[in-house]
């Protein structure tokens, strides 16, 4: 039971908005010590796992090209482009992106878009510009909200598209785990059953985006 102290430390640390890197290291020591490991052992385990997971941070290799195109005016161009499509509201634009993201993720192309390579340089500025065109000048809270919605749409599309692809990590994890429990399944048997949830996820999120459109078009007092 004591080992759950580390989980509690994470929850409290994040809720108190302490620096998450320190919170994580602190929680690692609390958990490890509570489980009867020595501090050196904890540090070694943590160091090894950190090193094994470097691939998680390799995605920042796309930052230089994103920076270059932003320096040359991509975000401004993206805004101008969307402003010309009068009928394309922010919500409908994001619904289009949701479809694109779900379909490409379902084909295994999970890395062709993402917060770094598409949301920051193109999708967020376009959604923002579309909203600005329809709703007038935006205040800081509205800007934050539409950008956050753009990032949220990317996540919805990825998470509820990728499991339809047979060779994605979570499907392989399930196949492997179930095999050790004596249940032999083909990846495709699991991935087809991701389709119902993918459809519902689309309906829910697209519905919210349409409601967002309607709410933001309402003339403000």
């Amino acid at each position: 039971m004591l080992t759950l102290l580390g989980v509690a430390a994470v929850v409290v640390g994040f809720a108190a908005r302490l620096n998450p890197l320190l919170v994580v290291v602190g929680a690692a020591f609390i958990t490890g010590l509570a489980a009867g490991r020595s501090p050196v052992e904890v540090l070694e385990t943590f160091g090894k796992a950190f090193n094994d997971n470097r691939f998680v941070s390799a995605v920042y290799l796309v930052l230089p090209v994103v920076g270059v195109v932003e320096r040359a005016g991509l975000r401004e161009r993206a805004r101008d482009l969307i402003a010309r499509f009068r009928g394309l509201s922010a919500g409908r634009f994001l619904i289009g992106y949701l479809v694109f993201r779900q379909l490409t993720a379902a084909l295994g192309l999970t890395s062709i878009a993402g917060p770094t390579q598409s949301v920051r340089p193109m999708i967020a500025p376009m959604a923002e510009a579309a909203l600005e065109r329809d709703a007038g000048p935006l205040d800081a809270a509205q800007r934050q909200r539409i950008k956050a919605l753009a990032a949220a749409t990317d996540n919805m599309g990825l998470l509820f598209g990728e499991d339809i692809f047979i060779a994605i990590g979570s499907i392989l994890l399930m196949v492997g785990f179930l095999a050790t429990a004596g249940i032999t399944l083909d990846p495709i048997q699991l991935s087809v059953w991701a389709i119902p949830t993918a459809l519902v996820a689309f309906l829910i999120h697209a519905g919210r985006l349409l409601l967002f459109d309607r709410a933001s078009r309402r003339p403000r007092p």
Partner: peptide, 9 residues
């Protein structure tokens, strides 16, 4: 990456 390592702990 830090959280992935915490998962190992």
């Amino acid at each position: 990456q830090f959280l992935a390592a915490l998962g190992a702990i």
